[in-house]
Simulated assay, not measured.
Amino acid sequence: MFSYIVNMNMVAFAIVNVPVSIASILMNIFFAYCMIFSQKGPVNSIKPLLNVLLWSLIGCNLILNILNLLFVFFDFVEWVPWIHILSEAGILFAMWTGFTASLALNVCYYFQIVPVRRPCLTWMKKHIRLFVYLALFVDRLFFLSEFLVRVIWDISAMNLNSTRGHVNITSETTDLGIDILSHIDFWIRCCYFLLCLGIMLASSSATVVYLRNHIKRMEENGSSFSALRKKQQMKVTVLGMIQGVLYFLASGWLMTEELLAYFVAFKDQHGHLICTVMALYSLGTTILLGVGQANFCLMAKNIGRKLQTLKCPLP
């Protein structure tokens, strides 16, 4: 079988990933601060479903970038193999669950903005909390089990390689069972990826098309349409388009790597390439989160005013 190995230089990996991950971590810590202290007033209160999704996305971004910094650290020091295995599996867990949180957030915005008429969509909108909570639960249960299987599998393979001289016929049977399970797991993830990608593209496209047509109709009919409201809807449209593109590129890259590894023995040496792509995706998602959430922007403006007051005290 044809095999191809990609090896990203560890210096280049560090130069790109360290500032990107540090910036993402600091911004997400600030978002967590905003989430905690914005609950005190009714003006900045966040709806429970949105609260859960934002915490989920912030948590996934923090886990991914903290583990990514550990990967950079592992390149320059001697590390314990099982810690590397745990970190790699943790990054994959944060990647996929972060994708699901972004998808659920996008779907919620779709149901808030776009009026639905079909019975199935009407039912989903009515029970959106149950639908999202169930999706998050199943998603995390599936990828947590995959996290455990990946860790046990990699540690077992590491121990097997170190004791290769003692392998007998039983190990061949075990390897065959693991191989079958890996094939099943791969195709389940492929189906999951295609389903999530289709939902993301459909909800993002429908939201963009609806807002574009809505703004156009309001302008043609001469209806009262404030500049502020138009600006807000245009902002939602642009952010939705960018989030959809980021989701498509990052999840598509991840699935392409897995397909190549499955069919042509493609290997990303040390996982540098995929970690870099995910770190950049996380930074992009974090920036969109900060721009799109009004309470984050308001908190940042308030902190900016306080800092400006401290720097320029009144006489």
Rank of each mutant, 00 (worst) to 15 (best):
F2Q: 12
Y4N: 08
Y4W: 14
V6R: 00
V6C: 02
V6W: 13
V6L: 12
N7G: 02
M8F: 06
M8P: 00
V11G: 05
A12G: 05
F13E: 03
A14F: 07
V20L: 05
V20K: 01
S24E: 03
I25R: 06
M27P: 02
N28A: 04
C34A: 14
I36D: 12
I36P: 01
K40P: 00
K40N: 09
I46F: 05
N51T: 03
I58T: 09
I63Y: 11
F73D: 03
F74Q: 03
D75F: 11
D75R: 11
F76N: 05
F76A: 08
V77Q: 11
H84W: 06
L86C: 06
S87I: 11
E88N: 12
A89F: 04
A89L: 05
L92G: 08
F93G: 00
M95I: 02
F99H: 10
S102W: 03
V107I: 11
C108G: 00
F111K: 09
Q112F: 09
I113K: 10
V116H: 04
V116E: 05
R118I: 00
P119S: 04
C120G: 01
W123F: 15
M124N: 04
M124F: 11
K125T: 03
K126N: 08
F131A: 03
F131C: 00
Y133P: 02
Y133A: 05
A135H: 05
V138T: 10
L141G: 13
F142K: 01
E146Y: 09
F147V: 04
F147P: 01
R150T: 04
V151L: 02
W153C: 07
D154C: 05
S162W: 06
R164D: 09
N168W: 13
I169M: 14
E172I: 09
H183I: 07
R189A: 13
L194I: 15
L195K: 10
L201Y: 10
A202L: 12
S205K: 10
R212I: 04
H214I: 03
R217D: 15
E220Q: 10
F225W: 15
S226D: 06
A227M: 13
A227I: 15
M234W: 14
V238D: 04
M241V: 03
I242G: 02
Y247A: 04
W253R: 01
W253V: 07
E257A: 12
F266R: 01
D268F: 07
D268K: 06
H270R: 10
L273P: 01
I274E: 12
C275Y: 09
C275N: 13
V277R: 11
M278S: 09
A279E: 09
Y281M: 06
S282C: 11
S282N: 13
L283A: 07
I287L: 13
V291Y: 12
A294Q: 12
N295H: 14
C297V: 14
K306P: 03
L307W: 15
L307V: 03
Q308P: 00
C312P: 00
C312W: 12
